[in-house]
């Protein structure tokens, strides 16, 4: 079978057993593969437990739009060195929870929160909001590059507030270096090295999304939030981004929302299953996919609903 096209999820549920490797047998295996690894390969690259460290903590968090509580009493750790996937049916509050982690929910009028969210032990509400958002960066479902050149997109993210390069000012070598590094980390640099000054809007959807990831990575965030980053992309772009996610988890704590269970299975180390605002199940991805403890998780994973 074509390694790019993994079998449908129900097949995985049946056939998966042989592929499963015990966790943490191959530390630091990630990041080496240039080609898209096979299903089995991905399962081998589990993070080294020694590098895993808690970055954020979500404690008994409730979130509401007006009177409508859409996230109810969720407690989750967000760790560096591993990927956390949020799965669940539409409307179960995944996006809301994700956006609350860098206080983007505050933009929505009437949004409210109860409970504690901490970043490195500090309540995020006590941090300066723009500072928090530089440390906890987000990539959205729709690629949304700014109407500037590719380079400026990254440089804008790098700079404290303004793009460092006015139309006439020269790029500093330092900035150029940092921007290239970010593009390289997002696996985009080699493709577009020749036309950094082209409009970012002329890139393909997959390239745009990787640019958005590069932009989000540029300021060296501690946590990267991804809201269905591949839902608008083709399988090859998706594979590239998944590869990227697995590679990035060593340095950044990653939370990804996805409707694609195969994707969650491929990239996530821990999985949280939400339903109607509640956290139904949370655990290592093998456990949630193979031995879910809750009936609702079992139903969801086997495609009985959602």
């Amino acid at each position: 079978m074509d390694p790019l096209m993994p079998p449908p999820v129900r097949r995985i549920a049946l056939d998966r057993e042989p592929h499963i490797a015990p966790p943490a047998t191959s530390p630091n295996g990630a990041g080496s593969g240039a080609v898209v690894p096979s299903e089995a390969h991905r399962r081998l690259t589990r993070p080294d437990p020694a590098t895993v460290r808690e970055r954020m903590r979500i404690e008994s968090v409730w979130l509401a739009y007006g009177e409508n509580w859409v996230v109810r009493d969720v407690t989750l750790p967000v760790r560096k060195g591993e990927v956390l996937a949020l799965i669940g049916a539409s409307g179960s509050g995944k996006t809301t929870l994700l956006r609350s982690l860098n206080r983007l929910t505050e933009i929505t009028a009437g949004a409210a929160r109860a409970g504690r969210i901490t970043l490195e032990g500090e309540e995020i509400h006590e941090l300066e909001v723009n500072d928090l958002r530089r440390r906890v960066s987000m990539v959205f479902q729709q690629p949304n590059p700014f109407p500037m050149s590719i380079y400026d997109n990254v440089a804008y993210a790098l700079a404290e507030q303004r793009p460092p390069r006015g139309r006439r000012r020269r790029r500093t070598a330092e900035l150029e270096q940092a921007a290239q590094e970010a593009l390289r980390r997002a696996g985009l640099y080699d493709e577009i090295a020749a036309d950094l000054d082209r409009s970012a809007l002329k890139l393909s959807g997959g390239q745009q999304q990787r640019l958005c990831i590069a932009r989000a990575l540029a300021a060296e965030p501690e946590v990267l939030l991804l809201d269905e980053p591949c839902s608008a992309l083709d399988p090859i772009s998706t594979a590239t981004i998944e590869e990227l996610i697995v590679r990035l988890r060593e340095s950044v704590a990653i939370v990804i929302v996805t409707h694609n269970l195969q994707q969650a299975f491929r990239v996530a180390d821990h999985v949280a299953f939400m339903h109607l605002g509640e956290l139904i199940e949370y655990g290592p991805s093998e456990q949630v996919f193979d031995r879910p403890s809750q009936q609702r998780t079992r139903d969801y994973i086997s495609g009985a609903f959602g």
């Binding site: 960066s137 804008y156 993210a157 507030q161 793009p163």
Partner: peptide, 27 residues
């Protein structure tokens, strides 16, 4: 200008003022 463009800028830790100056007005 869709709100997602503004949000993308806020999500990078940009203030409202620099979003206006460097993203909205140029576009």
């Amino acid at each position: 200008v869709p709100d997602r463009v503004r949000e993308a800028s806020y999500a990078l830790g940009k203030s409202r003022a620099s979003t206006i100056r460097w993203v909205l007005l140029p576009s």
